[in-house]
Simulated scan of single mutants.
Amino acid sequence: MSTSNHSSASLDYQQLVDDIRLWARQLGFQQVGITEPRIPEQDKKQFQQWLEQGLHGDLEYMERHKELRCHPEQLHEGVIRIISVRMDYLPAETETIKILNEPEKAYVSRYALGRDYHKLIRKRLTQLGKKIEAVVGDHGYRAFVDSAPVMERPLAQQAGLGWMGKHSLIINRQAGSFFFLGELFTNLPLPTDQPYEKNHCGRCSACMDICPTSAIIEPYKVDARKCISYLTIENRGPIPEELRSKMGNRVFGCDDCQLTCPWNRFARHTQESDFQPRHHLDNSDLADLFLWTEEEFLERTAGSPIRRAGFECWLRNLAVGLGNAPTTDKVMSALHQRRNYPSELVKEHVEWALAQHSLCSRG
C-alpha cells in the first residue's frame, strides 16, 4: 500500500489490516487482533459481581471507573474499532523454578525484572498509529496500556488473541500467557477478527491448586485480597498475618499460576532487550536487597515496575521473605539492622520475621 492519503471510499481496508499486522510485527508485537469497542454482557456481569463481592480489595479505581470499563466506546470519541496486540515478556535466561526453591533468594515476577512495559508498548502502539496515519491521514487514534479503565482481557478474547484461563489471564495456544496486552483505539472501520470462542482449560485446575494463598477462589475468579501480586504491589498496608508464611520468597508479584499452566510450555522468550533482567534481580539474596538504602532503591528501580511499590512496601515485602527464609547469620543480621527503621509498617513485619525465626529455633 502506498503511503499517501486516501479517502475512506477508496481505501482497501483488508489490505490496510494486512499492513497493520506487518507493521505490528516489525514493531515487536507477536500478534494483532481487531474487534469492536464492546464488552460482552457476560463479562460485564462477572465484573460487577466481582466488585459487589469486594474481591477487588482496596482497588478503588476499579469501582470508580466501572462504567468506562464496561463501555470502551466512551474512552475515545468516534472509536469504532480496537486493535488489540500482545508482546511476549518472558526472559530467556532466568532460573524461575530454581529461585522459588531457594528460600534465601528473592523472587520477582518475571514481568518486572526489566524496564516498565507501559512506556515501551505505548510508544510502539503510537508508532503503529502514525504508520496508519501516513497511509490514511488523520484517523483519530489513542493508545492504551494498562493505564486507563480498559477491560483488556475481554477485548483481547474478542479480538481472537486467546481465551480467558481459570487464573483470569489470557492464554494463547501457541504462546501460553507470558505476554503483555495493549490497545490502539481507532475511528477506522477495519474488518474485525473472530472472537476466540473455545476454552482449552478443560478439567485442568493446576493454577487453582498451586496458588500459594488460594486466591483463585473458583474458576475465572480471583480474590485480589489474597493474591500475592496485589498484596506485594497494590496493597499499602500490612500484609495479613495469616498469609505471610504462604508468600515464601515472593517479594514482588507471583507467577505460580502461570508457571504451572501446561500451555506455558509453548511460551516464547522475549526478544526485547528492555525486558531482560536488570541489577541481578533474577538472582539476588533477600538480605542483600533488604539492606539497599532508599537512594539505591530509587536508582536501581528507575524505569522499573518495582518502583510502583515504593521503598517502604518493598522493605515490608522483603521482611516477610526473610521471615520465611532459613535462619542464617546473614538473614538475622539483615533483620536486626532494620529493626528500628522509622516506619511502623516495616517494623511490624520485621518483628513478625524475627518471631518466625525464634519459633523455628525453639521448635
Rank of each mutant, 00 (worst) to 15 (best):
F185L: 09
A156M: 11
R153Y: 05
S168T: 15
I228W: 07
F178V: 04
Y196W: 14
G160H: 09
C227F: 07
P189M: 05
E183R: 00
Q194G: 07
F179Y: 08
N235T: 04
Y196K: 06
N199C: 07
K221L: 14
G202V: 05
G162W: 02
Y220T: 15
C204D: 04
D209I: 13
Q174N: 14
G140T: 11
Q158F: 09
V150R: 04
A215E: 01
E197T: 15
D146A: 08
P212V: 06
K166E: 13
S229P: 07
R203A: 12
R225Q: 09
I216R: 00
I233G: 03
S229I: 05
D223T: 08
A224S: 14
S229W: 06
F179C: 05
G176K: 03
L188R: 03
P212H: 11
C201N: 11
P149R: 04
V150F: 01
L169N: 14
D209N: 15
S168N: 13
R203K: 15
R142M: 11
E183L: 07
E218W: 07
I170N: 06
E234Q: 10
N235S: 09
P154R: 10
E152Y: 07
D209Y: 12
C211A: 12
K166M: 13
A156V: 10
Q157G: 12
I228V: 12
Q174T: 13
L181K: 00
D193G: 02
M164W: 12
G182M: 04
R153K: 15
H200L: 14
L155H: 04
K226F: 10
I216Y: 03
R153I: 06
V222I: 15
A148C: 08
L184A: 03
Y220I: 12
E152N: 09
F179N: 00
D193V: 03
R225P: 01
L181E: 00
N235Y: 02
Q158S: 13
A224T: 01
S147P: 06
S168H: 08
C227Q: 10
P191K: 05
G182R: 01
Q174E: 15
I217P: 04
L155W: 02
Y230A: 03
P219A: 11
K221A: 12
C204L: 06
D223W: 03
E197D: 14
Y141P: 00
A206T: 12
E152V: 05
T186F: 02
I228L: 10
P219V: 10
A148P: 05
C211I: 02
Y141K: 01
Y141E: 02
S214V: 03
D223V: 08
D193N: 14
C204V: 03
S147R: 13
M208T: 13
L169T: 14
N235D: 04
C211W: 08
S177A: 13
A206P: 04
C204W: 02
Q157N: 14
L190G: 01
P195N: 05
S147D: 15
G176I: 04
F179L: 10
A159H: 12
